[in-house]
Design a protein around this nucleic acid. Structure first.
Lengths: 209, 209
DNA sequence: CGATATATTGATCATGCGATCAATAAGGTG
DNA sequence: CACCTTATTGATCGCATGATCAATATATCG
C-alpha cells in the first residue's frame, strides 16, 4: 500500500511529457517548497523515472529557476488582473496590499524565501529571482506613478517607493510564515505605513468596494 | 599550497575545544551562510576532524540552531546597547531603523533568510528562529511603548506595530541582498512609512545627533 | 617515570543528490 | 504486419551529507 507499483510510463510525445514534467515540478514546489524540487521528487510526481526527467531537463538548476519563474509570473498575472478592475490608483494600491497580505499565498511565499536562500548557490535561479523582482516592481511602480499623476500620491522616486513597498510586503509575509499564533494582524498597519510613505491622509487606501 | 597539511590537533580540554567548535561554526555561518555550516566545513575551520565535531555536538541540526541563535543574539545586544545611548523614543526608533538598514549587516541578513528556509526542515532551528524573533520584537515593542507614553506615538497595539516594523526591515534587507545596483536607497523611505504607521508628523524620526 | 583516563582520529556506513549511457520497448509508418 | 525511430528505463557513477565506533595517541596524575 505504501509503495505504489512502478509500471512503465506510457510513451508520449516530447512536448506532452515535457509539459508534464514542468507541471510536476510546479506542484512539488508549491506543496513542499523549492528545496524539494529534485530529480527524484519530480519523477515520482510525474510517474516516471529520474532518468527521464534528466533527459528532458538536462540541468536541475535551470529547471528550479524555471519553476520559480513560472510560479511567480502566474502570481503577478493574477494580481495584475485583479488590480485592473479597480477604479483608481488608491483603490488599486489598497487592493494590492490587501491581496498580497491576506495570507492565502503562503505557498508562494515559501517559494520566494527559499529562492532567496537557494539562489545564493544556484546562479540561474538567482537570475530568475532578479527578473521576477523587476516584474513585480514594474507593476507596483505603475500604480504609484498613476497615483502621483491622478490621485495625490507624493513621492519623488516612484521606483524607490515601489521597491520599499515590495520589501515590506515580502518581509511581512515571510515573517508570518514562521510566526505562530495571531497571523490575523499580518497587514493590519500597512495601510497607515504606506499612506505615510506616499504623503497620503490617513484612511486614503481603505477598501471601498 | 592548496591543501594545508593535516597535523594532529593538540589535545585540549573539552570546554576549550567545544568553544572552538562553536566559534568555528559562527565564522562559517557569517562567511558562507547557514547552509554551509556542515560537519566537514566546521572541522576544517577548526583544524580538526569531522568526527571530533560530531563527538562534541552529536546533532548538527542543534548546532546549526545554536549558531543561528548566537549570531542573532549578539546582533540584538549590539543594537540594544546602541539604542540605550539615545535620549528619547523618537531618537531610539530613528536610530534603530537607520542602523538595521545601513547595509553593514548583510552577513546577518543572509543568516536570517537561510534560517527561514532551512528552518522548514530543521525543527530545532525553527524553534530558535521563533525565539530570536520574539527577542527582537521585545526590543522594538519597548521602544514603541515608551514612545506612546512619552513621545506622541499613536498606536493601539504596540506589539503588532513592532511585528510590522520588523517585517518591513527584514524584507527590505532581504531584498537588498538580491538586488544589484542602487543599494543605497534601502531605507530611504522607511522613516515616512513608520511615521505614518505610528501617527507621527513628517520628519519626526530624523536623526538629531 | 609509568599508568591511565580520555581527547582525537581513520575508516566506514547509509542516505540523498545530479548526471550519464547502453539497453529496451513501444508507437507510428510504410 | 513488420520495421525502425525514439521515448523510456535500469544500472551505475561521483560527490556530499550526518553519523558511528574501534583504535590510537597524549596529557595528566600517582
Amino acid at each position: 500500500m505504501s509503495t505504489p507499483v512502478r509500471t512503465r510510463a506510457a510513451r508520449k510525445s516530447p512536448a506532452e511529457r515535457s509539459a508534464e514534467i514542468v507541471e510536476a515540478a510546479r506542484l512539488v514546489a508549491l506543496e513542499h517548497g523549492l528545496a524539494a524540487v529534485t530529480l527524484r521528487a519530480i519523477a515520482a510526481r510525474a510517474g516516471v523515472t529520474p532518468a527521464l526527467v534528466a533527459h528532458y531537463r538536462p540541468s536541475m538548476d535551470v529547471l528550479v529557476a524555471e519553476t520559480f519563474a513560472a510560479i511567480v509570473a502566474a502570481e503577478i498575472d493574477e494580481v495584475a488582473d485583479l488590480l485592473a478592475d479597480r477604479p483608481g490608483p488608491r483603490e488599486r494600491l489598497g487592493a494590492l496590499l490587501d491581496t498580497l497580505l491576506d495570507g492565502t499565498r503562503d505557498d508562494v511565499t515559501i517559494v520566494w524565501v527559499e529562492a532567496w536562500a537557494i539562489g545564493r548557490r544556484n546562479e540561474p535561479l538567482a537570475a530568475s529571482v532578479r527578473e521576477q523582482m523587476d516584474a513585480w516592481q514594474e507593476v507596483v511602480q505603475d500604480v504609484i506613478e498613476d497615483g502621483t499623476a491622478r490621485a495625490g500620491f507624493r513621492t519623488e522616486d516612484a521606483a524607490a517607493a515601489a521597491w520599499q513597498l515590495l520589501g515590506m510586503i515580502d518581509g511581512l509575509n515571510a515573517q508570518a510564515l514562521v510566526r505562530w499564533g495571531d497571523q490575523s494582524a499580518r497587514g493590519s498597519m500597512i495601510h497607515g505605513a504606506v499612506e505615510g510613505m506616499l504623503g497620503l491622509e490617513r484612511g486614503a487606501l481603505a477598501a471601498r468596494d
